[in-house]
């Protein structure tokens, strides 16, 4: 199994029942990239408003993704292949003060 820690912050947690930290296990028969993970999150963790999370099969612009505290823009974005015990963080920049 592929063990991941998925965290939501900056307001993104509001789409996930206000739960910030999720421990998940994925069946690793096939390889998992962020692309597949986003769809899995939408189908399994997201509570409502999918358009606030995904847009055109990628993350909605304005939500930042970090893998193990590194900007996913440095890791190949959607095609980054997830490893066991990766920590994936989603931070919304879209929420005001």
């Amino acid at each position: 199994m592929l063990h991941l820690t998925i965290e939501f912050s900056g307001g993104a947690e509001l789409l996930f029942g206000n739960v910030k930290k999720h421990q998940v296990e994925l069946n690793n028969d096939t390889k998992w990239t962020i692309r597949e993970l986003l769809v899995w999150i939408k189908d399994n963790l997201l509570k409502h408003k999918p358009e606030m999370f995904l847009q055109d099969e990628t993350i909605r612009p304005g939500i930042l993704i970090l893998v193990n505290d590194s900007d996913w823009d440095l890791l190949g974005n959607l095609s980054y292949e997830l490893n066991d015990n990766d920590n994936v963080t989603f931070i919304s920049t879209l929420h005001g003060g």
Binding site: G10, D69, D71, T93, H95, G96
Partner: peptide, 21 residues
């Protein structure tokens, strides 16, 4: 950039409030 402000807050672990009005 907003992205850098949010990243700065994240890495500095600054305490801020985020929700929709």
């Amino acid at each position: 950039y907003e992205k850098e402000i949010v990243m700065y807050a994240y890495f500095k672990k600054l305490d801020y409030f985020s929700t929709e009005c």
